[in-house]
Design a protein around this nucleic acid. Structure first.
Length: 653
DNA sequence: AAAAAAG
């Protein structure tokens, strides 16, 4: 096993920390039904805000709240621990057993207090001031622009009190120190509680995770009891949350556990790189909400250890990544080719900071009559992140970085606070080599990328988060969604090729309403990024260096891929494009109008002669459309409309 | 072209 110098330093340090954190022993079983919900729970069941879902109730069963009624509830536990027949994985499901996922009737203390860890971590980081830990800077969220579209949009709320999720969850919200909902929560939660599908564009760190977790948890609590079949060791989660990286799944799981503390809703995480047996055991103990990465989930589905038959809530985090070329087949398989209820039965929510419209097109297959929500990007295109671009030739990058780090160290800009610096590199090898170089030059650092073992990845992240190692060199595995407080500086040592990736990367700082700095090293190899980067910075009222403006003006209008739309949003509802409909539903029409942004110029080469009927598939841009032989189409990609006669459509990837 | 995700 490869272990870097920095990690071994961190290991000795973090091991003590870890043992401290885990001083609360993990119970053998963590699901739990709180006392106040055991007998007369109907009265305590949270009242759903907004109108109930239009979807058919799951089993047509109207037999009261899952938590209500007397069937299956017992005032006290006759047995302890594993001996509790109600919690045993393979027990019979009696007619009165209304909840075969919920655990036993242990005392309240049996559930791990998800909030304990937080405090310990905070104690450990003595450098962090009190004030910095008190949640989110809400002033930073005033006057955030919001775009919303769709039919019958539920009204937003202004306070958590308006979306009363029940006493247990309200208490958890208070424990999380959430004072009032963030903009994305204000809009998304009522939409989700009303049972509507949702496509939401909002920066992570703006409260996205809570925005989809609260409704799912409260939905599961409120849903009528469903008699569930058990096939051998197969488990049937009700909610599924997918994310593109293992670390992000862990993070969502941690948060979801806080939100569901003492609600009886069991959240389990499954991801690759970790021993599957432990995850299987965890699943066997019961699962209501499964948080997973796609690969491991497919594995579990193929082993028939998990069935998606009972899924009523599906959430994709970082949905644009999940639907890009690398992931899309796996996601399609999970959502459309396994046993998941179709989109009119389940409720589907997609979240991301950016939503290119090709991705929206793909995503719309998963959604039914959805609402599109875009909340201005907190922290990336606002004043919260200061963006700098410097022209640095490839060969000077290391010494330039060294200069920055030295300056940072000397200025002590952040007082005694540990300033965390996140450095993004293009390749895994590059990350390793830079980390080594930094370490031998007096800057303790560590690295996270896909070639490291999961253990190493998690250790690296922990060491960085805790401030033990203040520099993390990362590939794009860390670009999305990770919430690492106190990252004050993001360095794009290598710029990404896609402007959206840049947006995600710099979003690792300026979290939760705090300010941050993002520095990018730009050189000849980044020319395709010149224009979109200059535009983005302009939009964000950042100082654009004259040389960048110059390069941007010389750059050709890139293909759609690098062009942003929607102003200060990560995207706008593609259904509002004038060409919508013509592109999607024109069976029987002969003329198709395609905007340049949808197609790269190479589309010309994709139209080939053949006698076969048109086929439905996607271009490399992710564009979907159906084409029939004999159809005429206009293509606007070359600056002026040109008419093509289609014999067939050839797909290139 | 690279990275991520299963082992």
């Amino acid at each position: 096993m490869r272990t870097s110098w920095a990690d071994s330093v961190a290991k000795s340090a973090s091991e003590t920390v870890v043992s401290n954190n885990n001083s609360v022993p993990r119970p053998t079983r963590s699901t739990y039904v709180p006392p106040h919900l055991r007998s007369s729970a109907a009265a305590d069941a949270p009242t759903p805000a907004g109108t109930p879902t239009e979807r058919p109730s799951f089993n047509g069963n109207t037999g009261g709240s899952r938590w209500g009624g007397s069937g299956g509830t017992r005032p006290e536990s006759g047995r302890q621990g594993q001996g509790n027949g109600y919690a045993a994985a393979g027990r019979d499901v009696g007619a009165n057993d209304r909840n075969n996922r919920s655990g036993g009737w242990d005392s309240r203390e049996r559930e791990v207090n998800s909030f304990v860890n937080d405090d310990k971590v905070y104690d450990m980081k003595q450098g962090f001031s009190e004030q910095e830990n008190t949640g989110i800077n809400f002033d930073a969220y005033d006057d955030i622009p919001v775009e919303i579209s769709g039919e019958n949009v539920p009204s937003p709320v202004n306070t958590f009190a308006e979306i009363d999720l029940g006493e247990t969850m309200n208490q958890n919200i208070r424990r999380c120190k959430y004072v009032k909902p963030t903009p994305v929560q204000r809009y998304a939660i009522p939409i989700a509680l009303a049972g509507r599908d949702l496509m939401a564009c909002a920066q992570t760190g703006s409260g996205k995770t809570a925005a989809f977790c609260f409704p799912i948890i409260s939905g599961i609590m409120r849903d009528q009891y469903v008699q569930r079949q058990r096939g051998g060791r197969t488990v049937y989660p009700l909610g599924l949350i997918l994310s593109p990286t293992r670390e992000l799944s862990c993070q969502i799981h941690d948060e979801a556990k806080k939100f569901s503390y003492q609600t009886g809703v069991k959240v389990v995480v499954a991801y690759g790189g970790a021993p599957i047996n432990q995850q299987l055991r965890e699943l066997e103990r019961g699962v209501d909400i499964l948080v997973a990465t796609p690969g491991r989930l497919v594995d579990l589905l193929e082993r028939a250890r998990v069935s998606l038959q009972a899924i009523r809530y599906l959430a994709l985090d970082e949905a644009d990544r999940m639907l890009d070329m690398g992931f899309e087949p796996q996601i399609k398989k999970i959502v459309e080719q396994m046993d998941m209820p179709n989109r009119s039965v389940r409720q589907t929510m997609l979240f991301s900071a950016t939503f290119p419209r090709e991705i929206q097109r793909l995503a719309s297959d998963f959604l039914s009559n959805y609402i599109f929500l875009a909340v201005g990007r907190v922290g990336s295109s606002t004043d919260l992140i200061v963006q700098r671009v410097e022209f640095v030739p490839e060969s000077d990058k290391r010494s330039h970085l060294m200069d920055l780090l030295h300056a940072q160290r000397e200025n002590g800009e952040h007082g005694k606070l540990q300033a965390l610096t996140l450095v993004f590199m293009e390749t895994k090898k590059g990350a390793d080599s830079l980390e080594h170089w930094l370490c031998i030059n007096g800057f303790p650092s560590t690295t996270i990328h896909g070639d490291r073992s999961q253990q190493e990845r998690e250790l690296a992240l922990r060491s960085f988060k805790s401030g033990k190692i203040p520099i993390l060199v990362a590939t794009d595995v860390a670009a999305r969604g990770l919430d690492i407080p106190h990252v004050t500086h993001v360095v794009n040592f290598d710029l990404p090729n896609d402007i959206d990736d840049y947006v995600h990367r710099i979003g690792r700082t300026g979290r939760a309403g705090k300010t941050g700095l993002a520095t990018a090293f730009f050189n000849e190899s980044n020319m395709t990024l010149a224009r979109p980067l200059a535009e983005l910075m302009q939009e964000a009222n950042q100082e654009v260096p004259a040389w960048l403006t110059h390069y941007a003006s010389q750059a050709p209008y890139g293909s759609n891929k690098n062009r942003r739309s929607g102003g200060h949003f990560g995207g706008c509802d593609f259904r509002r494009e004038e060409s919508f409909g013509k592109n999607l539903d024109y069976y029987g029409e002969e003329i198709v109008v395609l905007h340049s942004e949808f197609l790269p110029i190479t589309v010309e080469c994709m139209l080939l002669v053949s006698q076969v009927h048109g086929i439905r598939s996607s271009l490399s841009t992710g564009l979907f459309f159906t084409c029939f032989s004999g159809m005429y189409i206009y293509i606007y990609s070359i600056g002026f409309p040109r008419l093509f006669y289609v014999f067939t459509f050839s797909i290139r990837f």
